[in-house]
Design a binder for these strands. Structure first.
Length: 275
DNA sequence: CCTCCATCCTGTGGGC
DNA sequence: TGCCCACAGGATGGAG
């Protein structure tokens, strides 16, 4: 999916079209997209006629405040994107949810349907996984000491722990590899084996890597599953140091980048720079 | 609590 | 061209 930079780019792209706007119509064309909504009819019922107050984000979740103390939640999953269109514009395949304001349509396009939408009451929100999300990796990064405590004694690879949204929210598979390369820590190292200096290096790498991704509008892979709300592709792909560069030379030292499988996900890393 | 792993989907690209 | 397999930006629930 879309990781933090892509989700934040999406949030910014939607803001002018949703902040302060009234929702006149909401419909889902695939029941699966509402699977987190306790009763799926609540989704349209709670949105229609209400105004969106503010667009927030925590980690990879979009959290839109809606009149009546409601939170409209979107997770883009692996292949989700949001489009801003005018009514009548041709629809992309897999347009699974459509939200209309007075003069625009917000379309949730998600081929793999790993994403979801829901409109939660405060109680429902408190009972959801969103309540268990760790601090946002961009806006709320905890100090190294706190991170070190969360890694202490942990057996899983640091790469897996970086992807654990309960520890820090927002890092995914691409930026996780980029962060570890910048911090010069090998992805397979057990979390509990890191020295405090290594934890500090990772902590220091998170902000710059995520901000660089954000600056270029995120990373659109070849399949273009992720696009900005206006339809443009993110431009960070060419700037990636390791992700997807299996066999290519490390830009720092020239050694061939390796691919390893860690927790059933690909990890790309430089065996000389990272140890 | 922790760790591991299968699972939910559709699309694409490579090898034969 | 067609077929089959591997793989893809994520999160979760259940087993142990």
């Amino acid at each position: 999916m879309p990781e933090l930079p892509e989700v934040e780019t999406t949030r910014r792209g939607l803001e002018p079209y949703l902040a302060g706007k009234r929702i006149v119509h909401a419909e889902s064309r695939r029941a699966r997209m509402l699977r987190r909504q306790p009763r799926d009819r609540d989704f349209a019922d709670r949105l229609q006629g209400r105004r969106v107050i503010a667009l927030r984000r925590q980690g990879k979740f979009l959290l839109f405040d809606v009149e009546g103390d409601l939170t409209w939640v979107t997770h883009l999953g692996m292949s989700g994107r949001m489009e801003v269109a005018e009514p009548g514009d041709p629809e992309a395949k897999h347009t699974n949810v459509v939200i209309r304001t007075a003069d625009h349509e917000i379309r949730f396009v998600d081929p793999r349907t790993f994403g979801f939408m829901a409109v939660f009451t405060p109680e429902e929100l408190a009972g959801s996984t969103i309540a268990r999300l760790g601090p946002d990796a961009l806006t709320d990064l905890p100090p190294s000491r706190a991170l070190a405590l969360r890694l202490e004694g942990r057996k899983p690879a640091i790469k897996s722990l970086l992807l654990d949204q309960r520890i820090v929210a927002g890092v995914g598979n691409i930026y996780g590899d980029e962060i570890l390369h910048r911090a010069r820590v090998a992805p397979g190292r057990p979390g509990g084996s890191l020295t405090f200096d290594e934890v500090k290096a990772i902590r220091r790498a998170i902000g710059p890597v995520l901000r660089a991704g954000l600056k270029y509008g995120g990373t659109s892979l070849q399949d273009l599953a992720y696009l900005l709300p206006d339809g443009r592709a993110g431009e960070y792909l060419d700037r990636l140091e390791v992700y997807g560069r299996d066999g290519e030379p490390c830009r720092r030292c020239g050694t061939a980048i390796r691919r390893s499988v860690i927790s059933q996900r690909s990890s790309f890393w430089c065996p000389s720079c990272q140890s």
